[in-house]
Design a protein around this nucleic acid. Structure first.
Length: 420
RNA sequence: GUGGCUGUAGCUCAGUUGGUUAGAGCCCUGGAUUGUGAUUCCAGUUGUCGGGGGUUCAAGUCCCCUCAGCCACCCCA
């Protein structure tokens, strides 16, 4: 047993049963993306290491599968799709029709310790809109993320999109005299995990005073935009509040109002978000985030292209599959075939010829090789989930007709070849 | 990368304070059934007890290392 070579840590084998599940998730992703008018793109599975260190710094290398190729180039398996997207968009330059609605279903690799909902190799739907600074683009993506969950059989009772705004927090921090916003974002992102003293110390070190700290706490315990409006006074924050109101109205118009709620605790650790941010969670909050995204208006410029406003989100296949499993809606009925041919007289040529003529008509057809006992052949038909068995070489059917059996009902009949 | 828990047949698991030849169900194979499956009955195969080392007269059981899985931290693009 231990002699057998196991799959590498954090990877999965997809046997037909697992592959059917995977295809169901992929199917929902493609279906909804297409329904929303998005176009699919793909890039290389590996990129120059620089593409990732440029954006995230060299500490990211610890989380990457990277190596030197035979030409001594530093290469990394892609850990995310956005840098590739940015690179491709930059390549098109002014030829990029804006706004571009693009999606991709990349396989990604991250050198991390695996646990529930997090593996070293996984798939992640990426939906992005490039070239629009309109809040309608944010709403469109949020609606799409919810629509995917709906397509997979989930409801507003199962999934909640928690929405906030970097711009809102940024405006308040300016108002409070903050001198180091990135470290406050990090502290806020971990506010409920950090010991209170540590959180307070971090915030005070970033230039806020006691009253500023109290305001931050007020913001984080706010449950409505009305509360927030009373706390924040800067033009930037007021504009951000209005933007959130517009977003929620739009998402309601999209039909997903009850899937969404304002949650000032959503900050997202990532530095590059500039506007609205959101994360989708299972209602019980027992799993990791199902999806997360937001607006990143300065990222493409930072990666060497022209300034281009952008919004996007990512949804991994692992957490959503865990949730579907928990809900008991993960299993998919195996794809059966239309016909299974059972040979009565053992004439393989006859069977192959019959299969060919039915397949030419688009029927799905299977049969056992080399005939064998009828009972065994029938059992194979049942195992393959065939709907109908055709008996080939039966002397009970006239020339040009076949004896058939519906496996579900057990009823047998004589059917002309043209009617199969 | 840090810490905790777990590892027995293809799968799910039992295995007493260390004690002879390690068990059950499912699955699988064959038969009852030489022209009919998913029901039933009968028979049969299943293992370096994750791997390596140690303690002991004796280790699935105790100790150390290692590998793998789960959980929490870190991180979360």
């Amino acid at each position: 047993m231990s002699q057998k070579i196991q799959p590498p840590k954090g990877t999965r084998d997809f046997f037909p049963a697992e592959m059917a599940v995977q295809n169901r998730i992929f199917g929902a992703w493609r279906k909804v993306c297409t329904r929303f008018g998005f176009q699919e793109y793909e890039g290389p599975a590996f990129e120059h290491l620089e593409l990732y260190t440029g954006k995230s710094g060299s500490e990211i290398v610890g989380q990457l599968y990277n190596f030197q190729d035979k030409g001594h180039r530093d290469i990394a398996l892609r850990p995310e799709m956005t840098p590739t997207l940015a690179r491709m968009a930059n390549q098109l330059g002014r030829n990029l029709k804006k706004p571009a609605r693009w999606f991709s279903l990349p396989r990604l690799w991250r050198y991390e310790k695996q646990q529930r909902g997090r593996l070293r190799e996984f798939f992640q739907l990426n939906m992005d809109i490039l070239g629009s600074d309109n809040v309608g683009a944010d709403a469109e993506l949020l609606a799409a993320a919810c629509a995917i969950c709906q397509e997979l059989g989930l409801t507003a009772n199962d999934v909640k999109a928690r929405i906030s705004s970097r711009r809102l927090i940024s405006g308040l921090l300016d108002e409070l005299g903050c001198t180091d916003k990135p470290s406050v974002y990090l502290a806020l992102d971990r506010r409920d995990k950090l010991p209170r003293e540590e959180f307070v110390a971090g915030v005070l070190a970033a230039g806020l005073d006691e009253s500023g700290l109290a305001k931050l706490d007020d913001l984080f315990t706010a449950t409505s935009l009305e509360d927030v409006d009373k706390i924040c006074h800067s033009d930037e924050s007021k504009a951000a509040v209005q933007e959130l109101r517009d977003l929620l109205a739009l998402v309601s118009a999209h039909g997903f109002g009850d899937w969404c709620l304002f949650d000032p605790k959503v900050v997202r650790g990532l530095a590059y978000y500039t506007g609205i941010v959101y994360e989708l969670f299972d209602a019980g909050r027992s799993l990791r985030a199902i999806a997360g995204g937001g607006r990143y208006d300065s990222l493409l410029e930072k990666l060497g292209g022209e300034a281009l406003p952008a919004v996007g989100f990512g949804m991994g296949d692992v957490v959503i599959a865990e949730l579907l499993k928990d809900k008991g809606i993960l299993e998919v009925a195996p794809d059966g075939m239309d016909y299974w041919i059972v040979s009565v007289d053992g004439d393989d040529l006859k069977v192959a010829g019959l299969a060919a003529s039915l397949r030419a008509k688009g029927r799905t057809v299977g049969f056992g090789f080399g005939g064998g006992k009828l009972g065994k052949q029938m059992q194979s038909a049942a195992e393959q989930h065939a709907r109908t068995v055709i008996f080939s070489g039966s002397d009970r059917a006239p020339e040009g007709s076949f004896e058939t059996k519906e496996l579900a009902s057990g009823t047998q009949s004589i059917v002309a070849l043209g009617d199969l």
